[in-house]
């Protein structure tokens, strides 16, 4: 059996060439797609709005043309009684991200469906029916108050993570900005069941 005539398919070098070719080709395609994707998800692009979108109303509606839900950005609707310049908004959103990372929010919650599965997804938290009964400015205050002094909701309670007022405002701004990102219809039918 060992002495059978050797064909090229029995030569490891043949398969090595295939492995190298597949890896190089796929890596090059990935690099090209990465360059394009990064361009499309830079803040200020149609898919990912600029950070000062937090000065506007943000909703999530069914778009018949796309046959899916999509964010809808409306007119001015300030939070915390302040109109943020693009620089201020970027700084606030940066701080919001630090709040989210420092408290490891993602290890209980999910963002765009990625994270801990133990607590609700936060992708559209800004327009969740729990909060959207309040108009924009009041909603921001309610959300910030909840983060600082969490109430029991359902079976689970959110822990008190000693979030300060300035941190809570930054995190709320972050959730509002994030809810404006076009995530290809995820989550589907958000709020539809509750008539929102």
């Amino acid at each position: 059996m060992m002495e059978r005539e050797q064909r090229y398919t029995q030569d490891p070098l043949f398969w090595r060439a295939g492995a190298i070719a597949a890896t190089i080709f796929m890596s090059m395609v990935l690099v090209a797609l990465t360059i394009d994707t990064l361009r499309q998800i830079t803040p200020g692009s149609p898919r990912v709005p600029a950070y000062d979108v937090i000065n506007n109303s943000v909703g999530y509606e069914y778009d018949p043309a796309r046959a899916e839900y999509a964010p809808k950005i409306g007119g001015e609707e300030l939070i915390f009684g302040h109109k943020y310049s693009p620089e201020e908004a970027a700084e606030l959103i940066g701080k919001g991200k630090l709040v989210i990372q420092s408290r490891a929010c993602i290890d209980c919650h999910t963002f765009f469906g990625n994270g801990g599965y133990y607590a609700p997804d936060l992708t559209r938290a800004w327009m969740d029916p729990v909060w959207s009964i309040y108009a924009g400015p009041k909603r921001a205050d309610k959300l910030a108050a909840f983060m600082m002094h969490p109430l029991r909701l359902g079976a689970h309670a959110m822990p008190d993570l000693h979030i300060q007022r300035d941190e809570a405002e930054a995190a709320v701004a972050y959730l509002k900005w994030m809810s404006s990102v076009d995530s290809n219809g995820f989550p589907d039918r958000f709020g539809a069941a509750s008539g929102q």
């Binding site: 729990v130 039918r189 958000f190």
Partner: peptide
């Protein structure tokens, strides 16, 4: 529809 209410 993935809301907080639906999760709870």
């Amino acid at each position: 529809g993935s809301t907080w209410g639906a999760f709870l």
